[in-house]
C-alpha cells in the first residue's frame, strides 16, 4: 500500500503556510530568508509528489531547477543581507524601511 499523493500535498501545504507565517513574523533577515527556503522546499515536495501522480518526469526536473535557482538566490540574497548589515548595523528587515521612497 502506497501513501496517496494527497497526503504529500497536505504536508506541502502545511509546510508552505508555516514558511509564510515565518516571513510575516520574523524580523531577522536571515530567518525571513530561511522561511522562504522552507516555502520553496514545500513546493518542491508537492512537485515531486505530483510528478509521481501524473506519471511524468517534468515535476522532478522542475525541482532540480528550483534548487539551482535557490542556490543562486541564496548567494545573492545573503550578500545583500551582509551589505545591509554593514551599512545599517542590523539585519532587521524593519530597519530597512528607510529605503522607502
Amino acid at each position: 500500500m502506497i501513501v496517496p499523493v494527497s497526503y504529500y500535498l497536505v504536508l506541502g501545504a502545511i509546510l508552505f503556510s508555516i514558511g509564510v507565517t515565518g516571513v510575516l513574523l520574523r524580523r531577522n533577515a536571515i530567518m525571513v530568508f530561511m522561511s522562504i527556503e522552507l516555502m520553496l522546499n514545500a513546493v518542491n515536495l508537492s512537485f515531486v509528489a505530483m510528478s509521481r501522480a501524473l506519471d511524468s518526469l517534468d515535476g522532478q526536473v522542475f525541482v532540480f531547477f528550483v534548487m539551482t535557482v535557490a542556490a543562486a538566490e541564496v548567494a545573492v540574497g545573503l550578500a545583500l543581507i551582509v551589505a545591509i548589515f554593514r551599512s545599517l548595523g542590523s539585519a532587521d528587515v524593519d530597519d530597512a524601511h528607510v529605503l522607502k521612497g
Binding site: I2, V10, A13, T21, M50
Partner: peptide, 26 residues
C-alpha cells in the same frame, strides 16, 4: 493568515481542477 492559508491549501488539495488526479501511485 498562516492558518487561513493552510486551511485554503488543504481544501484545495481535494479540488479536482487544482490537483488533476487525486492520486493513487502505483
Amino acid at each position: 493568515f498562516g492558518l487561513l492559508l493552510a486551511a485554503g491549501l488543504i481544501a484545495a488539495v481535494n479540488v479536482e481542477e487544482l490537483t488533476g488526479v487525486p492520486g493513487i501511485m502505483s
